[in-house]
Deep mutational scan, measured.
Amino acid sequence: PAHPYDRLKTTSTDPVSDIDVTRREAYLSSEEFKEKFGMTKEAFYKLPKWKQNKFKMAVQLF
Rank of each mutant, 00 (worst) to 15 (best):
R23A: 07
E32T: 04
T40R: 02
Y27C: 07
D20H: 03
K54C: 14
Q60Y: 15
E35H: 09
K41F: 08
T22C: 13
E25G: 02
Y5N: 07
F44Y: 07
M57C: 14
E42H: 08
P48A: 06
T40C: 14
S30D: 15
K9Q: 13
K49N: 04
R23Y: 07
S30I: 14
Y5L: 05
Q52H: 00
K34F: 15
T10P: 02
K9E: 11
R24T: 13
M39K: 00
E25L: 04
K49D: 04
A2T: 15
G38C: 12
Y5D: 07
K46F: 10
A26C: 11
A43E: 15
T22W: 06
V16R: 01
S12G: 03
L8K: 02
K36Q: 12
L47T: 00
L47P: 00
P15H: 03
F62C: 15
T10N: 13
M39W: 03
F44T: 00
K49G: 09
V21E: 12
T40N: 10
K54S: 11
K54G: 11
K36D: 03
K54A: 12
D20C: 09
K54Y: 13
K41R: 10
Q60T: 04
N53Q: 13
A58P: 01
T13E: 14
W50K: 05
F37A: 00
Q60F: 12
H3L: 13
S17A: 14
F55T: 02
F33T: 02
T10W: 08
V16D: 04
F55G: 00
A2W: 15
E32V: 11
T22A: 06
V16S: 02
L28R: 01
Y5S: 06
Y27D: 03
Y5E: 07
E42Q: 09
E31K: 10
E31V: 09
P4M: 06
A2K: 15
L47I: 01
F55W: 12
K36T: 15
K54D: 09
T13C: 14
F33Q: 01
M57P: 01
M57K: 12
H3I: 15
T22R: 08
F37H: 01
D14L: 06
E32N: 05
K36R: 12
D18S: 08
Q52P: 01
R7G: 10
D18W: 04
D18V: 05
G38L: 07
F33G: 00
F33R: 00
I19Q: 01
Y27T: 05
A58N: 11
K41I: 11
L61C: 11
R23V: 04
E32R: 08
K34G: 10
W50R: 05
R7N: 10
P48T: 05
R24N: 07
K49E: 09
D20Q: 00
L47C: 03
S29G: 06
P15L: 08
R7H: 10
K36W: 12
E25N: 02
S29V: 08
D18P: 09
V59W: 08
A43Q: 14
L47F: 04
K34C: 15
L28P: 04
M39Y: 03
Y27F: 03
Q52V: 01
F37Y: 06
K54F: 11
E32P: 01
T40V: 06
M39I: 05
H3T: 06
D18G: 14
G38I: 02
E31L: 12
K41P: 07
D6P: 00
P4C: 15
Y45M: 03
K49M: 13
A43F: 12
S17Y: 13
F37V: 02
T13V: 09
A58M: 12
E31T: 13
R7W: 08
S12H: 05
R7V: 11
K36S: 03
P15Q: 04
M39L: 07
P48I: 00
V16W: 05
V59D: 11
E31Y: 09
S17R: 10
V21M: 09
V21G: 07
H3A: 04
F44N: 00
F62T: 14
L8C: 14
E25Y: 06
F55L: 15
S12A: 14
T40S: 11
K56W: 08
V16L: 11
K41E: 08
Y5V: 06
V16T: 06
F55K: 15
L28A: 01
P48C: 05
V59T: 07
F33Y: 02
W50D: 08
T10K: 02
T11L: 02
Q52F: 01
A2N: 15
P1M: 14
E35W: 12
A26V: 11
K46A: 12
L28G: 01
E35I: 08
P15N: 07
K41L: 07
Q52C: 01
A58L: 14
D20M: 03
E25V: 08
E32M: 08
L61F: 03
R23G: 05
L28K: 03
F44L: 01
L47W: 03
S30F: 12
K54V: 13
V59A: 09
K34E: 15
L47H: 05
A26R: 05
P1S: 10
K51Y: 11
Q60P: 06
R7E: 12
T40F: 03
Q52G: 00
K56E: 03
D6K: 00
I19P: 03
A58D: 14
Q52W: 01
A26G: 09
E42C: 11
L61Y: 03
W50G: 04
L8Q: 06
P4H: 06
